[in-house]
Design a protein around this nucleic acid. Structure first.
Lengths: 346, 346
DNA sequence: CTGAAAGCGCTTACAG
DNA sequence: CTGAAAGCGCTTACAG
């Protein structure tokens, strides 16, 4: 049996009586190798379970199959699902994820800088990066990148040239408001997310636009952090001071919707009788809780990001035209927003 | 400005008028370097934001800071939180996670074999591996490993020598049963998890042991998959055939508890009036749903695994004595298991 | 305390 | 189609 490291390409070469160069060629699926040679070498590799050394390969300039995913840990459900999606397509390409979880914005940017250079990973997906990254760093073109759940519009620091996968916040917000309006809401409160989050900024803009189109509805907006506790606090504050309660509340995500529902309960406001509530993400708990929400295609965000990344990797020409995938959010209507009279007292 | 790759150790050497060897020594924090030299080199490195090439370092035999985490994607909440925990301590050591998500048991074992060899990563944590791994592969000692949420008792194929981080299933199951007993349950059904999951096997054993100690209580056990849908089906089947309904149900995890609650509802059984329900994991949704459950210290499982791993890495002596950390599950009592009369009709 | 040299295991022009 | 050689950027004995 082999001791330690497992065998090397050199040993495979000796075993099959062929040069290292040629073995390397079959390994990298280089076309110019005779079928006989290829078969023999592959046979030997299989027999011995040869696995090329990742580091040697990376150092020599070959692909390593390593994809860095840089994330913030704010919403672990989102994070995990997107990772699963990326992994799904990466593992089909013999790739592995190098996951980096940033603890804050500065950290995020450092991680990006670390991996932005060649010779570290094959490519990187920036998962819901803080918007500051678009201002404070360049989209150095050394390595394939895709922005997931974020997009830089203006051509600033090269970011407009990178592939993006985003979600149609505009349409989503329009759908939600229409749904609430149809269900009788005339005073809608939007509890938005932090300003440095792309989706939050987009939805904020959409909300304001729709508000202008519907002067008959009172539209208000406040801001909250991303967690249940934060939205609970924010809404408590709001309700304490509010003269009139809203009859519809839109949360930035499901977690904050839960906090909002708690706060409403505390203030003796019933959902949906007094207030309609809508969240976003469609976390597993939401179906159980009957929360109307926008279904976020997390896994597909991951898959699509990986697809775009591998497309860049496969593109020999180097003439990369930026791709922008836009995925839809679909409204899942449940009991928290439907005013139909209940059949049982429950 | 530097083009492309960023600068190399060689350039740092030239810039500071010192040999590559010495620069490498300050990089690896080798003790035998004069303070003057060290300061100068560090200064230059900082000025230029030097980042050593991971691949070169790995190839040359130095540490890369890469920790492979091999997981199954069964429960993404668990997965994500443990990863966060591992990352927390790894990032403190300038480490990064290489996350591998296995799609099935064979896949899991392959991934393990891939990373078990030196020259790939500094260490690996096997996150809740299928038990088959203990039978079907060796704990090749080439590289530091820790088993998280799994443990091999008997000295089989070297697995009993590896560090483990597990949870006290024995005590947890005892606590739960005692809680149910005190609250009046006299017919308890345990809906256990799959046999190839370590925690499931442990809890099964504990349940059977406690059952023997309490002949006055009827104890039954059935098996289910890990998801809400699966437990829903399994319980529906059970209830369809059952002569008498249990007055207490223990689920393997919270997801399956949700499925169980749905099934009970379908059969017009009220929780907690007719049936007490207890889950395990304490997922975020459970607090909202009022599900009594065992709090699983996911993040701490990750942290502790990483701690043990880095302790092995730091251990120069090579005389590794296996460490076994046992974390406690704590019972969070909520409305799904308390028979106190409700104050309001709600 | 410091430097010159060998080597880690690959890939990739460059010749044949 | 195949091989000999150089080189990727580090680390680590081995001398001084």
């Amino acid at each position: 049996m082999t001791k330690g490291q497992g065998l090397t390409l050199r040993q495979i070469a000796e075993l099959s009586g062929i040069s290292k160069s040629t073995v390397s060629r079959v390994l990298t699926k280089h076309p110019g190798v005779s079928e006989r040679t290829r078969d023999r070498v592959e046979q030997v590799m299989r027999e011995h379970g040869f696995q090329p050394n990742l580091f040697a390969r990376g150092l020599a300039g070959g692909p390593t199959g390593l994809v860095a995913v840089i994330a913030t840990e704010i919403t672990s459900g989102f994070f995990a699902e997107v990772m699963n999606g990326i992994n799904e397509v990466a593992s089909g390409q013999e790739g592995h994820l190098l996951s980096c979880i940033a603890h804050n914005t500065g950290d995020y940017i450092n991680l990006w800088r670390t991996f932005a250079r060649k010779g570290r990973v094959d490519g990187v997906v920036l998962l819901a990066p803080p918007l500051q990254i678009l201002e404070q760093s360049h989209a150095e073109n050394e390595i394939p990148v895709v922005l997931c759940a974020c997009r830089g519009e203006r051509n600033r620091k090269g970011w407009s040239h990178v592939d993006t996968v985003t979600v149609n916040n505009e349409k989503a917000m329009t759908d939600v408001l229409e749904h609430l309006r149809v269900n009788g809401a005339r005073h809608i409160l939007y509890v938005g997310g932090p300003r440095d989050v792309y989706d939050a900024r987009e939805r904020r803009t959409s909300f304001l636009r729709v508000a202008r189109e519907h002067p008959e509805i009172k539209m208000e907006m406040i801001e909250s952090g991303l967690t249940r506790d934060q939205s609970f606090e924010v809404l408590n504050n709001y309700l304490r001071k509010a003269e009139r309660c809203p009859d519809g509340v839109i949360a930035f995500n499901d977690s904050t919707a839960y906090g909002i529902m708690e706060s409403l309960k505390l203030h003796h406001l019933r959902v949906p009788e007094d207030v309609l509530v809508v969240g976003c993400d469609d976390e597993p708990a939401s179906a159980i809780l009957g929360l109307t929400t926008l279904h976020m295609p997390m896994r597909e965000l991951g898959r699509e990001s990986a697809r775009l990344l591998f497309a860049q990797l496969a593109d020999e020409t180097g003439s990369h035209k930026p791709q922008h995938s836009l995925l839809e959010l679909t409204l899942e209507i449940r009991s928290s927003s439907s005013r139909q009279p209940r059949t049982q007292a429950q």
